[in-house]
Write a protein that binds this DNA or RNA. Structure first.
Lengths: 185, 185
DNA sequence: CGATCAGTAGAACGATTGGTCTACATTCGA
DNA sequence: TCGAATGTAGACCAATCGTTCTACTGATCG
């Protein structure tokens, strides 16, 4: 149990899933995941019950990371209004990365047609937490209609991610930031 | 050649593809397409060369329909400004339909990992035509920065479609309309 | 009439899918 | 020291994928 113990198969599977599900979509084969994680086939089914379980577990973990990213992006400025506007600057950087492939949760939802798939619950949970974070921020800002404004900010965020994913727009974050600015006036 | 001749296999395949690719995604099996179209396996390969060809052909046809829909949505009002705002009302109706499953082109792009797939070219073409339509409308409106505003309107449209697809937002079109209104001021 | 052609119907293909199972290695605590 | 756990390695399975193929049918037209 030394602190430098190499991560076990469960951890490696989560890491491989986070990487491959994002870069190649939820349709990557189990074989590719096992190879990337250097893990035996059996370990996947013992730890996650199957591919579906891994997809859901990866989304759950990614939600933690992503929400922390949003918190960090908001922390870029002190003034309440600048905090939210700065978020779109960070988003613009994010989607400008050529490796950016769009919103993880939306892509997964689209890929998994079965509405009962456990991954959908994770997507919903993430979106609710993101929305709550926006509402909280708008309340701290003293906005008159935090719920309505959060809906609009959410729409701007999703729009930025889509525009960034299709790549034919160099700086969707800037376009969204300008719209957000009028919203926060 | 009577005018009531039932559509041939090519036409039925396009119709089946437009229906199934949208409702079940580009990953629907060839068997389901053939069954829906009531067409022999062989016809698919003679007319479209394979499933990839059908996917691309369906997107090309859908682009015509969808752009016509956008034109129609703009035609709802006479006053230039109301034309664009009315578009978001129509979008709100569209995404409120429980059968709405998001943007056809973006979903297809996400589903087809291979960047060389012919469907991507059709998606790009559609987006460019949509963008051109917005620019034209903004010019007619006498907007100071039609290109920039079109980018923002496009972002609002895509955002509306995403929010509508996830369903946890009853009226994303209204949120987008309000943002668009400030943009057109 | 007979040839051609577009169509249907469906068997069969090789590859790949997610999932199960057996055999063996390692670790670790009773 | 023995015996569970926990892991790896990989064969194997049934199902499904997109594709190719053969066999047959029904027009259309010289």
């Amino acid at each position: 149990m030394s602190p430098t113990t190499s991560p076990g198969p469960r951890e490696r599977l989560l890491a491989a899933g986070q990487e491959l599900f994002y870069s190649r979509g939820a349709s990557v084969g189990v074989d590719a995941l096992l190879k990337e994680a250097n893990v035996a086939r059996r370990s996947l089914y013992e730890h996650f019950g199957g591919k579906d379980g891994l997809v859901a577990a990866v989304l759950r973990r990614a939600a933690e990371d992503d929400l922390a990213w949003y918190e960090g992006a908001l922390a870029g400025a002190a003034e309440p209004r600048e905090r939210l506007l700065g978020l779109f600057d960070r988003l613009d950087d994010l989607v400008s990365d050529p490796a950016f492939r769009g919103c993880r949760y939306f892509a997964t939802d689209l890929a998994l047609a079965d509405p009962g798939h456990p991954a959908h619950a994770e997507s919903d949970a993430f979106r609710q937490r993101l929305r709550a974070l926006l509402v909280r921020e708008l309340q701290a800002l003293g906005h008159d209609h935090p719920e309505r404004a959060a809906e609009q900010l959410h729409l701007l965020i999703e729009g930025t991610l889509v525009m960034g994913a299709t790549q034919d727009d160099p700086h969707p974050g800037r376009a969204a930031r300008d719209l957000a600015a009028t919203l926060l006036a």
